[in-house]
Computed example of a mutant assay.
Amino acid sequence: MRILHVHWTGLPVTGGVETHLHAVVRQLGALTREVRAVVGTRQSPGCDYDPALDIAEPFVPARAAALAERCLDADLVHWHNPQWHKPEVVTAVVARLRERRWRGRLVLDLHNIDEQPEQWEFLATLPGPVVAHSAFVADEVRHRLPDADVTTLALALPLEEEPYRLPGEGHPTVLQPSRMTRWKGSHLSLEASMTLLDEGTELHFVHAGTQHLIWPPGIPRALLERAEAWQEKGRVHFTHYRPPQSWAAIRASDIVIHPTIDRGAHGEPFSLSVAQAVICGRRILASDSGNLPLLLADYSAATLVPAGDVQALTGALRDAVHRPPVVPTAGDRALAQRLRDDFATAGQRHLAYYQTLADKA
């Protein structure tokens, strides 16, 4: 079976679709040699670049036709988040596949979703089953696309580890291991940490994910200017690390903070980094956005706060910095093992799903 994964970006980031993409393609490659990934960012490790997918490039019909030719050579095309960018490219490729009577299968992978009606209207026009990676996203899709064939598959994550040393030492370290964006609540964790620093609390705040951002971070300028003083004092740090280094970074932290702000369909779709924090036995502060309450329901060292509530987040952080190190319970260890097993076997589960689709064709 010839498998082609398609996504808009493929640069190494903190968490996100790209981390899963690289990991699942690698796992699939160990099971079948006929798997490729094509993306719209240059110099993306293990991926082919296609200008039709480059969100910085205009729509060019000839480029979309060339991308369709790539797809025609595959038995299965797995398109990640087709609704987010350049719908004219997706439409042109699908139309070309239909014109050429392509006998393969198209899979629509919805990693993160939104409330925007036009996105759901667009998705309703596309053929093929839908893959989600959490019960939260799957339920939202079924609610908005009641006729969709939805399957939930585990995300992949590289389990290989590389050394990494977090900046700052000698005080409790609070780490936000997500991309730096307003949606992820980066401004809230920064404000909460600096409020405690202003009160005299001894801590380091580290925010990862400061490179390869698709959208501007959206952090208020006044907040960043306030952070500059604490950066000069060596208490606030903005950094970036590769996915294999994320394990060492999370283990080196005392508290992992992840306050995604959205309460609706654009809530946290899964959170690889929070799952890693569970596996590493860290204390976790998270919002009640999207999948986070489901992911952390059985974890003893998690505190949930209302999404977007900076006062609640600050209070939870004030309490957390004075708590002793986490001693995982038997339930915590069982949850960690389930998550780790899911990450390790995601490629096998994807391949089994693809085979099921092929058998139905």
Rank of each mutant, 00 (worst) to 15 (best):
K233E: 07
H111F: 05
W215F: 14
G168N: 02
Y241D: 04
P216W: 04
Q43L: 10
A286H: 01
W79I: 15
V13S: 04
V17G: 07
T356S: 15
V39C: 13
A275R: 14
V13E: 06
V77F: 11
V326D: 02
T345H: 15
S271D: 12
A65W: 04
L304R: 09
V93P: 05
P127V: 11
L294N: 05
A62C: 09
H111C: 07
W8Q: 14
G185C: 01
P163S: 07
L197K: 04
T303R: 00
A252D: 13
A154W: 06
D309F: 00
L296A: 06
G264N: 13
L153F: 11
L335D: 10
P243G: 03
L351E: 12
Y353C: 04
I219V: 15
A336T: 03
V130Q: 02
T19M: 10
R26K: 12
V17Y: 03
L126D: 13
H5S: 05
H204K: 04
P328M: 11
T151R: 15
R338P: 08
T239I: 02
Q176D: 11
Q355K: 03
Y241N: 14
Q27E: 09
E99F: 07
H20F: 07
A252E: 13
P163W: 07
E169S: 15
C71H: 13
N112I: 12
Q311K: 14
V141D: 13
G290E: 10
Q27D: 02
G209E: 09
D54F: 03
V94D: 13
A62S: 04
S246I: 07
V89A: 11
T239V: 08
L203Y: 01
R242V: 12
L108P: 13
Y241L: 02
V141F: 05
T41M: 11
D309V: 03
N81Y: 09
W215K: 15
F136D: 11
S44E: 05
T181I: 04
